[in-house]
Each structure stands twice: as C-alpha cells, then as structure tokens.
Write a protein that binds this DNA or RNA. Structure first.
Lengths: 125, 125
DNA sequence: TGTCTATGTTGACGTCTGTCGAATCAAGTG
DNA sequence: CACTTGATTCGACAGACGTCAACATAGACA
C-alpha cells in the first residue's frame, strides 16, 4: 500500500559503505575514469523504456518486482528482457528467480551514489 | 545568446517558481511522458565526454566556464562543440558569447531537479 | 513424460550517435 | 583591409543502439 517513503532503500543513510564512485559533479572536474564509470549509469537510465522499468521496480512494494508486473511499457517482451539486462549490467538492478517468476530489485547504494553526484550541497565535510 | 529559455526539465508555474518534471524515481512508476522527459536528461549525461564537460563547467568558478578552459578532454574541437550543443539542447547548460569567447553555464535548478529524481528522501525538504 | 506459462537469447534490420577533417562564422588586432 | 584565434557547422563514416520475430530455456503441473 504505502510504498512511498518506506522503501528499504531509504534506510541506509548512516555509516554504510556506498561505493562512492565519484564526487559531486560540481565539486571538481571529473577525470576520464570517473566520467566513464558515472556515464555508464546515466546511460542506462537514458532510455525512456529503461527509466520506466527502473522506476516501476524502485517504486514497487519492497523495492522489488517480477517482470510480469512491470512489462507493460509498450514494447515487446524480448525488448523488456533486453532492457532489464542492460540495467542489470549497469549495476542498477539485481535479479533473482523464485519459482516461475524472476524478480528484479534495485541496488540502493548505487541509487544513493547517483543522487550524490547531482547534489549541489557544498558539503564542506 | 539567449539566457532565458524554457528548460525541458522544468515547467514554469509562476514568475520564478519552477516545478520538477517528475517525482522521485522511487515514488511511483513513471508515466511514458515523464520517462521521455527525464530520459532525455540522463541521456545527455550518459556520455563520458559530455559528463566531463558538464562537470568542468559545474565545478568552475561561478558555475561558468569558456570553451577554451574545458576543451581538453581528448577529442577534437568540433566534437567538443557538438557535445556542448547536446548539453545545451538537453537544458543542462546555457551559453553566452562575451567578446572572443563563449561561456557555458550550468542551470542550478535543473541540477536540483535531477538530484530530486534520485532522492529517496520524502518530499518534506 | 508432456504441455503450458514465464523469461531469456539469438539474429537481423533500420536508426541514432560519436568522431573527425574541412569549411565557415565571429571577434579582435595590426 | 588582411590576418589570427576561438568556436560552430557541414559532410561523411564506423560503430552502437532499440526493436522485433523466432527460438531456446526454466519451472510448474498434470
């Protein structure tokens, strides 16, 4: 029901390892290596179908959804599978087969890292 | 050239107020229209060269830099111009010619809207 | 076993994208 | 004016991308 705000991915904000690939975009110019890493993630979300799939998974109850629940995005089933694979390869989703269905789940740390990239916070820490 | 243009990511709702194009990715599944808008922005940052250029501008003094200061990213000058144009078309940068040089500047509100997309925190900001 | 449903993989096709060299435009200087 | 430097546009090309139909695979169930 209330899947807003109670997602498991918003819990870890304390002192957990979040794999900080890069500093905020506004902190200093990215190196070529940092840009390569970060661009891979942005690129994965740079397609409308993938963005809808990712959003569908992320907003689903428990931050997890089976393909059957999110595959109504206007493209064929193989295309859905193709995009889910891309999101998985980009490290944004993980998948797990449980019986008949395959469940996809967001990677909270990556989402947090991406959000930090776009943070304008001075963060003089 | 023009410094005031309608940014794709923001919908003007008043004199100065702007509203984000989309809710956080985790709030609810994106509609096709929202995904189209947001994906355009992610796509613009989905290239390493563009990401470096954007980061270079965003981290430069005053959030502004001339092309001559940021064009050392390993590609030819036409390619740099090509990518800057893409970032501009995506609404992430604005440009202005002052004498000999052309200065690019980040759009803070757009950056904030992007960050909000990836924010898991509740809306009570 | 066999069949049905749910996903993933393969191969192919048209389109988009990143890149460069050359030409062009814009502004300053002599 | 001609000349130089900074920046964009043009034309072309190789490679990547999104899409689908067809096929393959995994599990459930009779």
């Amino acid at each position: 029901m209330s899947n807003t705000r109670v997602l498991p991915l918003l819990e870890p904000v304390g002192a957990e390892a979040v794999a900080p690939c890069c500093p905020p975009l506004t902190e200093r110019p990215f190196t070529a290596e940092e840009a390569e890493t970060a661009a891979r993630m942005f690129k994965a979300l740079g397609d409308p179908v993938r963005l809808r799939l990712f959003s569908a998974v992320a907003s689903h109850e428990g931050g997890e959804a089976c393909v059957c629940d999110i595959s109504d995005v206007g493209v064929s089933q193989p295309t859905v599978s193709h995009h889910l694979k891309k999101l998985k390869d980009a490290g944004l989703l993980t998948s797990e087969r449980r019986g008949t269905w395959v469940y996809y789940r967001v990677e909270p740390s990556v989402l947090a890292a991406m959000g930090r990239l776009l943070t304008i916070a001075p963060a003089a820490s």
